[in-house]
Nucleic acid binder design. Structure first.
Lengths: 192, 192
DNA sequence: CCGACATGCTTCGCACACGAACGAAATCTT
DNA sequence: AAGATTTCGTTCGTGTGCGAAGCATGTCGG
């Protein structure tokens, strides 16, 4: 019967290979620069956003709260960031880069492997666009499902909020520079 | 050229989102079926390959030896697989599915989220092909670098869409995963 | 003013995932 | 045949990653 799994299996296999490659590259970064991939990503986000809470940071790097807490623990231990309780809202924790953190970040390489970057820039522009569009499309399709457990299907019109969360098809005009992840206004719990 | 930086960041972000979605889906699988993604993948590989050593299994699922050892530990503890020392080569360990493992596997869902699968099948065929080709291309570029610094590269990055598309899609039959590796027992060029 | 609830971060337990190091077994060398 | 080397799997240590639970704090209704 359903032996037509090949397409699915190939997609799964390709994703797994990519994940593994990312992981291996992360370890290489740690060896050569003392920073793993997630640590570097968090550091970059902290630099881009300026002073920000750990929650904001978590949303920016697409990771859960506990995960960034752990990463910030190691970053703090190495003296690259600074965690202080916010004065206004004392629940919140403000994260700042130290000068050490800034210099380390300035000297740090890209999150992508050098060779991959070179090959990428060597491609035709339409190919790069295709790759990016495909990845974003995949990301939108996959984390849309994870994000909401509600049985609500996508009807016709989408309001601004949903649109921001899942811009499935966009023309060649992909996003410019936006650091995205604007607000995410505290979603209401669906089920108790 | 100013836009090249943002392109990189967007690619990284998309990959992270995909990885996170895969992870979240894995946890949902664990909740609903008692099997995480890697466990299910390993179980499927064990079923496809029949009796096989843990090393063969590791290569099949694109994971390291220690990782599959851990996964097999949990699978064994649940009585889904059976580990026995090989009679011929007593270093090797033969992995077999138990009857429990087979029934669990038969009842198990796909590694991909249902909704993602539905959306995928709803796409035009050329779009599916593009997605698969892009993912495989990414995987090839990225794990080529991680694997080694060997000069093995993808042939022509030119007109790849047509070129890459054709050989990639094999018929529904037994995809026989690796186009790579084949027989590795050549030499061991390791560290000095 | 004070409980009831909400929010933000941390702690805890689990499951990957890897390289390094280890012991056992097989293979090669001398 | 004895020793060196390779190969196979496991164990160890580190670093993600998550949800659930725990605290501390803020906010709202009575």
């Amino acid at each position: 019967m359903g032996t037509s799994l090949s397409m699915e299996n190939q997609i799964v296999a390709a994703i797994r290979r990519i994940m593994r490659a990312v992981d291996l590259h992360s370890r290489r970064l740690a060896e050569e620069h003392g920073l793993t991939g997630p640590q570097l990503a968090t550091l970059q986000a902290a630099a881009n956003l300026g002073e920000s809470s750990t929650g904001t940071l978590a949303r920016a790097v697409h990771l859960s709260g506990p995960t960034v807490t752990g990463i910030l623990d190691r970053l703090t231990k190495r003296g690259l960031v600074d965690r202080t309780r916010n004065g206004q809202d004392r629940r919140s924790v403000t994260v700042r880069l130290t000068s050490d953190g800034e210099s380390v970040l300035a000297a740090a390489p890209s999150l992508l492997q050098d060779r991959f970057r070179q090959e990428l820039t060597r491609l035709e522009e339409w190919e790069q666009t295709t790759i990016l569009a495909t990845l974003q499309r995949m990301a939108a399709m996959m984390d849309a499902e994870s994000l909401d457990a509600s049985p609500l299907l996508v009807p016709g019109p989408l309001d601004a909020a949903t649109q921001a969360a899942a811009p499935v098809i966009s023309p060649a005009e992909t996003v410019a520079e936006s650091t995205d992840s604007a607000a995410i206004p505290a979603k209401a719990p669906t089920v108790p």
